[in-house]
Amino acid sequence: MIKVHHLKKEFFDKKGGKIEAVNDINFHCLKSQIFGLLGPNGAGKTTTLRILATMMKPTAGEALVNGYQVVKEAHKVRQSIGFLSGETGLYDRFTPRETILFFGRINGLSEKLISTRMSDIFKILDMESFKDVRVDKLSTGMKQKLSIARAIIHNPPILILDEPTAGLDVITARVVVNYIKEFRNQGKCIIFSTHQMAEAEKLCDEIAIIHKGKILSSGTLAELQAKFQEQDLEEIFFKLVKVKAEGEV
């Protein structure tokens, strides 16, 4: 469902010159799979996900989302994805019902379909009790549920989640993680970025460790453990980063 081939993204900074945010990365993510991009801040996770979500254009390489090219067929790509980030991205002065109506409409759904989907989603995410409360009055957990609802209102086959649990308390983070698992069970392809090793361990079917724009290693957790003779993902990560740093020296 997602194929990334030699993807590159360079930025130009007046002070720092050329910055390679994403440097020749390759991976693919299948249906009913959670693919985790694991890396520290500034590793290139968000840039990669923004390219997949058609918000940014790659400098080189190719990315296919649901069979569509992110640059040439951006419109079709956007029909296939739901995007969610740690920043809830919600309108404070709207209620959850108004938010979902708006996002259903701008994603081209009919009023009837929006109504049915909204009703189902509100039940699934247990949002009935606060569907008419203004967003600025909601708790962080409620807001994150609404963000999820907003991302899936058009029932996209692919979910792009950029650190969706960042800044959340343990309970809310757990709720979000459970929903992500549920979406996988529904057959969705999920690409997920995080800098939390434990979260990646628990959730991801496949993990790519990304650092300074490059994927250092990827595979299932078991494959990575076997490859690096380490049980702990954090140790694997540090081993990889250290090797890279020594290589650079």
Partner: peptide
């Protein structure tokens, strides 16, 4: 507020 990104990934 991060809401602009949600518009950019929509059909608009």
């Amino acid at each position: 507020r991060g809401t602009l990104a949600t518009l950019l990934v929509s059909q608009l």
